[in-house]
Amino acid sequence: MIIEQSLSMIFPLLLAPLMLGLINRTKAFFAGRVGQPLLQVYFDLFKLLKKGAVYSRTTSWIFQGGPMIGLAAFIASLLMVPFGGVPALISFAGDFILLAYLLALARFFVVLAALDTGSSFEGMGASREVTFSTFAEPVFFIAMFALARLSNGASLSEFLASQPRLWAPNIPLFFLISIAVFVVLLAENARIPVDDPNTHLELTMIHEVMVLDHSGPDLAFILYGSALKLWIFGAILMGVLIPIKVEPTILGQVTALAGMAVLSIAIGLVESIMARLKLGRIPPLLIGAAGCALFALLLVLRGHP
């Protein structure tokens, strides 16, 4: 068991950047381009790690500490995320709360690092980041409460492991929860329709503009961290969506890996066919997702379907 558990920690550490590659390839395919190599993100990471760094004179130690703390928080969160039906390395009652707050800690430091540069662009991105995550967090929590009630458990591993027994009569329910989690995934990972990961300098984006001034290993940490964050939400979504529990468990993990690939393509698809929403339309989107999650919770509470 410990081997599989470690595997579900090793997979993201190795494969998370591949998701970004897959998304990029999908988008390129829909745009009629060949696109960058699948492994481009890895190349970028290695290149950045080998470089020196440039720091603004305005910045303080917060700016240099932000990426580090962010990455550490993402890796620590991964410890609590089950993958493919295999329980996570660490699981305890309410671990999803710690996960959400670790992600919040990472956000806090990325935002502070952005404010540390004194650039108004980055201030703008920081301001939007905190605004939208304020709405995304309750959605995630309500969805988790629904799962808690459904699975009669209290930790992520219990929520996402006891699926097969419950799947059959609850298709609409999982569908609703998946919608909510998917919207949170898009919002938290700076994907279209909430944010555009491709633009760097327009006034429209959020996450990318906050990391404008980072360079070298710091930027590598941020890039790698955002891949891991995508994996965290992807793994949770897979846990909700994939109904099959297979023996041996390694097969379940392979299924989940395939699921992650499909998810990456789906995200690429969403990014290809949708435009970024106007900023004012993002809170309604997240509130709509909250509505889905709450609807799911109410359905569970009724003991039905």
């Binding site: 790690l49 020196g52 760094a53 440039v54 720091y55 603004s56 910045t59 004194g118 070298g216």
Partner: peptide, 15 residues
């Protein structure tokens, strides 16, 4: 990673 690398000081990127 940064040991032995050049670390510049500059202004904040001002677009």
């Amino acid at each position: 990673l940064l040991s032995g690398k050049t670390i510049h000081e500059s202004v904040t990127w001002d677009c």
